[in-house]
Amino acid sequence: MDDADRAGIEQARLENAFLAKRTTLTPSRPSATDCIDCGDEIPVKRREYVPGVQLCVECQTLKERQ
Rank of each mutant, 00 (worst) to 15 (best):
S31K: 04
V50G: 00
T24D: 13
V50P: 00
R22V: 03
Q54K: 10
S31D: 09
A7R: 10
K21V: 13
P27E: 06
K63N: 06
T23L: 11
I36M: 13
R47L: 03
L14S: 04
C59Y: 02
R29A: 15
D37H: 07
K45D: 10
R29I: 11
I36H: 12
E10T: 12
I42H: 09
C35D: 05
A17T: 08
Q54S: 12
Q66G: 12
A17H: 07
R47Q: 11
R46V: 13
V44L: 15
V44R: 15
A12E: 13
E10G: 03
P27R: 05
P51Y: 06
D37T: 09
R22S: 02
Q54W: 07
D37Y: 04
Q60P: 01
Q11H: 03
E58N: 11
A32G: 00
E41I: 08
R6V: 07
D34I: 07
V44F: 09
P30K: 14
G52L: 01
K21S: 14
R13Q: 13
V44A: 15
V44C: 04
T23E: 15
Q54I: 05
R6A: 11
Q60D: 05
Q11N: 02
G52R: 02
V53R: 11
A20K: 15
D37F: 04
R29C: 08
D3S: 02
R47V: 02
D2F: 05
E58T: 14
T61Y: 02
T33D: 14
Q11F: 00
L19K: 14
D3Y: 00
L55T: 03
G39H: 07
R6M: 06
L25F: 03
G8V: 01
E41Q: 07
R22L: 09
M1A: 13
R13L: 14
E58L: 10
V44G: 01
Q66D: 07
R47T: 03
K21M: 14
M1T: 13
T61S: 12
L62M: 00
Q11M: 04
P27H: 03
M1K: 11
Y49Q: 11
P43N: 10
L25Y: 03
A7Q: 09
V57L: 10
V57H: 07
P27T: 03
I42M: 07
E64V: 00
T24R: 15
P51D: 10
A12Y: 02
C38A: 11
G52Q: 02
A20M: 14
G8W: 00
C38T: 12
S28T: 09
R13M: 12
R47G: 04
I36L: 14
A17P: 00
R65A: 05
R29W: 07
L19A: 10
S31W: 03
A12V: 08
P30R: 13
P30G: 04
K63M: 07
I42P: 15
L19M: 12
V53K: 05
G39S: 09
